[in-house]
Design a protein around this nucleic acid. Structure first.
Length: 592
RNA sequence: GUUCCCGUAGUUCAACGGAUAGAACAUUGGUUUCCUAAACCGAGGAUGUGGGUUCGAUUCCCGCCGGGGACACCA
């Protein structure tokens, strides 16, 4: 038997294969294989309990019969996997030290893990839509989430074998531009893209205009009229618009650079300005959209919430009554472009949770449209996240006071990290301490955001975002530093000095080895619902397992076999930690 | 009002219907002639509430209480 990359997946397949030969089971048997509490086993299968109920059999007896069939199949090497029945009928699988050692020798670097993980999304064309900010605003703390979550999700998808296009779908064609252009005209403002305060000026004008439109409906109509003029191709409006977008994109890019974010294309809403007419035409031609109160709308009568008969009407407005496009129009056009031009098998939208209704409508209406026009609909997923709340428990918004600027947050995190690095490592050159501080500061920020389930809201807190202890990025990075230090001290690179390595033996070695194998399960889990926090949890557990191993078992010992196997554990730990950190967008450092 | 999320230690968060609900911070006791103590080992402390389904519920269903979001031309 060759060494399995993902034992849970293989055991699941084996159980399914032998199930039909067991009385009371058939091919529909679901093993429900999952990682187990390590106090009991490495993996457990709970399927026999449910199946026994269905077959009116004794669950333990059925589990026993299943295990007997598994052993009789000859495909299970019991020197590698031990099986036993526990409790009401759990089947527990425990990997032996021999299996752990074999895995560590076989799956030694990123190319091997990538090959193993490619079964998850290999060969699929995926378009991911992030961070997609609205233009003409400075990035504030609220922009942290789409950048950080989007980047992590993108890297995870790519790691698991997908052919990925990162599309920054910026909001550059909406009413915000009507408000802004109106404000510029009202103030007689001369926009100079080279001015260092250009973006601040735009933001101020936008805020003033936004306040006016809220106070006075006539101003809102005037802003809409400005937008309509822009969308109709007015030359002066377009010239101004071009300059605003340039200023905005340059400012965003400075933030992206610091987060290591690289998008492949920037196809904002404006890119689809000449593609929406086709959408309107097709929707009307196929009777999918209709006039309502002057606008062109779509209903989903099959979904009560979006039905025309709903108590509170929520139509999908694809064209406004003044003829201009909106979010829905451009998103439909964008969907078509991604399906036809990029040949996407899957489209992933990374936005905040307040847009859930919009995306449900987009997916439902998009599906109807594609069906009517005989097109293949990509799999559509909305990766949404909760809001960063202010002290008042409400979303941090530009309108209610100034939220913290993202750059300010990065600078503060970097400065705090610099103080810590200087205290711990005063002998390092200044430039290196600065570089390390920047890496740690940005990493700490992004890890806070990634480490909790993305659907949760959380309150903004300097203390929390700048924490360097506990389940934080510096803790994980420190584990890497300590591993690398061992190799540096020994004058070798990770991966060297492993010849003659024996199987893990001490409790801490075995615990670390099992945790290393857990990488495969962590990837599966993070990919299933595109939730990076599962990877964070795993990396934290791995770092903790390494910490315990490091404290209990000296690596640089006399016995060559012991030393070799511990060097192997160290090498795998740092490799998986570094790989996992990079998937989260965090660049590890050599020392700190 | 309709509808969608969310309620877990003092705090911030985990737990794909499974075994004794797991971490971190804070509190508290210990560990350094030894590979980076930004570390390690230990202690105390939690499922809003009332029903239901299930062999088994933090998880699924219903009611209530509490927080947040969306709801006709913002994105």
């Amino acid at each position: 038997m060759s060494v399995w990359f993902n034992p849970a997946r293989e055991l699941d397949a084996l159980l399914r294969k032998v199930a039909p030969s067991v009385a009371g089971l058939d091919a529909s048997f679901q093993p429900e294989l999952r990682p187990s509490d390590p106090r009991h086993a490495d993996f457990q299968s709970n399927g026999a309990i449910a199946a026994a109920k269905k077959a009116k059999a004794n669950p333990r007896a059925l589990a026993t019969a299943l295990v007997d069939a598994l052993k009789a199949s000859g495909e299970l090497d019991e020197s590698l996997v031990q099986v036993e029945i526990a409790g009401p009928g759990f089947i527990n699988f425990k990997l032996t030290p021999k299996a752990l050692g074999a895995w560590l020798r076989e799956y030694r670097d990123e190319s091997k893990w990538r090959a193993g993980a490619a079964r998850i999304m290999g060969g699929r064309k995926v378009v991911i839509d992030y961070p997609s900010p609205n233009t003409a605003k400075q990035m504030h703390v609220g922009h942290l989430r789409p950048i950080v979550i989007g980047e992590a999700v993108a890297r995870l998808i790519e790691f698991c074998g997908a052919d990925l296009v990162r599309d920054n779908h910026i909001g550059d064609w909406g009413t915000n531009f009507g408000i802004l252009i109106l404000g510029i005209k009202r103030a007689g403002f001369q926009l100079d893209a080279r001015s260092p305060t250009a973006l601040e000026d735009l933001e101020r004008l936008y805020k003033e205009g936004s306040a006016l439109t809220k106070a006075d409906p006539a101003q809102l109509d005037a802003a809409r009229a400005e937008l309509a003029r822009l969308q109709q191709g007015d030359a002066a409006s377009l010239a101004l618009w071009t300059e605003i977008v340039a200023v905005s994109n340059a400012a965003c890019q400075r933030i992206y650079d610091q987060f290591g974010l690289k998008t492949d294309v920037i196809l904002g809403e404006s890119f689809y300005r000449d593609k929406v007419d086709q959408v309107y035409a097709e929707l009307q031609q196929h009777g999918l959209a209709e006039e309502s109160e002057g606008a062109l709308v779509m209903w989903c009568d099959e979904e009560p919430r979006f039905s025309r008969h709903a108590e509170t009407k929520m139509p999908f407005i694809v064209r406004k009554k003044d003829g201009s496009s909106n979010y829905a129009s451009t998103d439909l056009a964008t969907l078509l472009y991604r399906a036809e031009h990029f040949k996407a098998d899957e489209v992933v939208y990374v936005t905040d949770g307040r847009q859930q209704d919009h995306f449900q409508q987009l997916f439902l209406n998009g599906a109807k449209w594609f069906k009517e026009t005989n097109r293949k609909l990509p799999r559509l997923r909305h990766v949404w996240f909760g809001t960063i709340l202010g002290e008042d428990g409400k979303a941090i918004k530009t309108k209610s006071g100034d939220p913290v600027r993202l750059q300010e947050l990065i600078d503060e995190a970097t400065e705090r990290a610099y103080v810590a690095v200087t205290e711990k490592n005063p002998d390092l050159p200044e430039a290196e301490r600065r570089a390390i501080a920047k890496a740690i500061g940005v990493a700490a920020l992004r890890y806070v955001d990634l480490s909790s389930n993305r659907t949760m809201d959380y309150s903004f807190s300097w203390t929390k975002l700048l924490a360097f202890e506990g389940n934080t990025a510096p803790y994980l990075m420190y584990a890497v530093v300590r591993v690398r230090s061992i190799f540096r001290k020994n004058g070798i690179e990770p991966g060297q000095g492993e010849a003659g390595a024996t199987d893990p033996e001490t409790p801490t070695e075995i615990a670390l080895a099992r945790k290393l194998l857990g990488f495969t399960a962590a990837l599966d889990q993070a990919l299933e619902d595109l939730r990076p926090h599962h990877l964070c949890t795993y990396l934290h557990e791995l770092a903790a397992a390494y910490g315990a191993f490091y404290a209990a078992d000296s690596v640089l010992v006399e016995d060559p076999a012991v030393k070799a196997r511990r060097l192997m554990l160290c090498a795998r730990t740092t490799a998986i930690m570094e790989c996992g950190l990079r998937l989260l967008g965090i660049e590890p450092v050599e020392r700190m």
